[in-house]
């Protein structure tokens, strides 16, 4: 079921393949010749601003007889599939780049990847039973993620952090990701809700507004997103 759902999320293999080829190529060359920090931050920016990262579920799957946990896993994996290859491309390029602090940089990139992964799981873990995450929550995660990643990189480029600190940070991130995933997976209901069960204190009609918010990056959206 989960495999089928993921396959459904990426129906146009051609578009995805072309997109990745282009982006990976750019990243690879950027890593070889330019500041790694900049390229990663740009990737993070691109990604976090795209709706894919912070979109949760759509009405389409919610109305189908699919257990909520399957939907959650499939969506999360589909999201991860769109970010991990980008970072792995950077990591593979590092040994060939001009940086002196290769080990620290690699560790920092891994840490950044885990931070973003944690952020993506966190999108789902607030008010798990609801179909869509509140807009403000998505924005917070987006901005915190970006700031954290940028800070990480500016530090690496100009003042490398000792390796053992980075590695322990990686360990913490891995544990945090696993824990958050487990908690979220456990509390995911069989069927997602359109709104909170308890009535709000004031009118949150805006959350349920029919007006769509465009997010820019139209070509990116077309390859990955539902209309």
């Amino acid at each position: 079921m989960i495999y089928r759902l993921i396959k459904f999320e990426y129906p146009s293999w051609k578009g995805v393949a072309i997109f990745y080829a282009v982006v990976l190529g750019c990243l690879f060359s950027a890593t070889l010749f330019a500041h790694i920090g900049t390229s990663v931050t740009v990737v993070a920016l691109l990604f976090l601003l795209g709706t894919r990262a912070v979109g949760r579920n759509t009405m389409f799957e919610a109305a189908l007889p699919i257990p909520g946990r399957d939907i959650f896993c499939a969506r999360l994996l589909a999201n991860l599939l769109s970010i991990w290859p980008l970072f792995l491309a950077i990591i593979t390029a590092i040994p060939f780049s001009r940086t002196e602090t290769k080990a620290q940089t690699t560790a920092a990139v891994i840490e950044a990847l885990l931070v973003i992964t944690f952020g993506m799981i966190a999108v789902y873990s607030f008010r798990v039973e609801e179909l869509k995450a509140p807009r403000w929550w998505k924005q917070i995660i987006g901005w915190i993620g970006m700031i954290a990643v940028s800070v990480l990189f500016i530090q690496i480029d100009f003042d490398p952090i000792p390796l053992f600190l980075t590695i322990s940070a990686i360990g913490i991130c891995v544990l945090a990701c696993m824990a958050l995933f487990w908690k979220t997976w456990n509390s995911t209901p069989q069927s997602f809700q359109r709104g909170p069960t308890e009535p709000a204190l004031r009118d949150l009609a805006l959350e349920r507004s029919v007006y769509p918010r465009s997010r820019g990056c139209p070509s990116y959206e077309r390859s990955f997103l539902h209309k």
Partner: peptide, 8 residues
């Protein structure tokens, strides 16, 4: 408001 997956 049911959006069908556009790219399929």
């Amino acid at each position: 408001d049911q959006v069908l997956p556009g790219a399929s």
